[in-house]
Design a protein around this nucleic acid. Sequence first.
DNA 1: GCAAAAGTGTTCACATTACACCCATGG
DNA 2: CCATGGGTGTAATGTGAACACTTTTGC
Lengths: 241, 241
Amino acid sequence: MATTRKKPNINITPVDISKYFGYAVSVDCVIFGFDENALKVLLIKSDLPEFRDQWSLLGDLVRLSEDLDTASYRVLRERTGLENVYLEQVHTFSAVDRHPAGRVVSTAYFSLVNVKHYQLRQMDNELHWHSVSDIQQMAFDHKLILDTCLKRLQKKVQEEPIIFNLLEKKFSLRQLQNLYEAILGVQLDRRNFRKKLFTTGFLSDVNEMEENVPHRPGKLYTFDQEKYERASRKTFVGIDF
Amino acid sequence: MATTRKKPNINITPVDISKYFGYAVSVDCVIFGFDENALKVLLIKSDLPEFRDQWSLLGDLVRLSEDLDTASYRVLRERTGLENVYLEQVHTFSAVDRHPAGRVVSTAYFSLVNVKHYQLRQMDNELHWHSVSDIQQMAFDHKLILDTCLKRLQKKVQEEPIIFNLLEKKFSLRQLQNLYEAILGVQLDRRNFRKKLFTTGFLSDVNEMEENVPHRPGKLYTFDQEKYERASRKTFVGIDF
DNA sequence: GCAAAAGTGTTCACATTACACCCATGG
DNA sequence: CCATGGGTGTAATGTGAACACTTTTGC
């Protein structure tokens, strides 16, 4: 019943596709952090002759025994020592000439980590945090990847409470607001922000206060994942464009 | 300055990565259409022994000279004869055992076409439209891909006016509402729906009416892309979860 | 006591929802 | 004239935006 056709089609026809197995697959992780009231990203210097001394995302080739999520988690673990971090696939980049070593298709992930919790695993190649807003140029197509992931992050923090992954367990409302402002690049009204966050019902007052601040200390809160998940998820339907 | 490390890292170290070039890369297109008040998807039967007689998305191997977008457009052109269709990358699927032929990583796209405009290019393998809501099982991981793309579509039609790609140029408000209802799986209030759509300002009255309907004919409208693009894009900032 | 940020309510404009009747057409 | 869906408005409610003063702490 198999039809003959000019071109192989991997979904319907058993053909010799061995000549198509010429790709390498990689992941690139845009690891976001928050420090000094600025959104940061973890970068390393490239040693490739083509991109020497340019900044690069943390990425790696995907092993033949791994799927993409596994490879991204591995990169994160190897580079930051962190497990259980927030990780989200964003987009796959595939320009024919994007990598000098050959046809490398790369899937971008972004991840949210607490800058305070992580320990760099490899201090070589000047692995460190950069303010996202300062970055002008990068190796490969990594600036494009970064921009794409930043846009996704901006959208996502308005839709889901993932932003808490960037803060310590206990945080003040001021820190939370500063973080939203850093990610979204806007100024928010403090009273409306507090009202909004409290009405979600997902903040728990832990009865502690900030310490060592040169002004009146604020109360500390935690994000209550349980309450969030139990709340009947809004099946919001609205046309908005 | 290049450091020696245990593992190759394609972003920073020039290593022999030839042994990593063992992947095939494919695209799978979830081609959505709208007909008989139901959301449809274009499927074909698989001839692979492992999935014989199961339904499959339209996909193909990506050529070494192509990027992913190009390959998706090619699949669409080859299968529907359509150019300039709406196409959006959604997610990359990479389970180690997802394809019996070997390590095939597949990037899913969804596309919106007008069922009336398209002509099937290859009528073999029972290429035809299926109601999305009727589909239970598919070849490979294609049910997962379909579900993922449907969710993306549901979200996207509420954020951007892409839905018009599924209708003819001229459409009645009833057709538009039926389409929203089919995609979102909800019932909408007719008066509020009309009000909402008119206040966007992107519908142009073309001074024509429906014909051959067994009831009072409705007015026909077009979506005015120009007006949409000229309107200062909402830089909406709101926290909503 | 001064600087710096915490904490707190009200008003207004606008958007969303719920809801019912007459109208135009085909048969 | 009947069946079918087209076309229309209003009132109530909810949401987002703007806005200023008092309190608490460290120094």
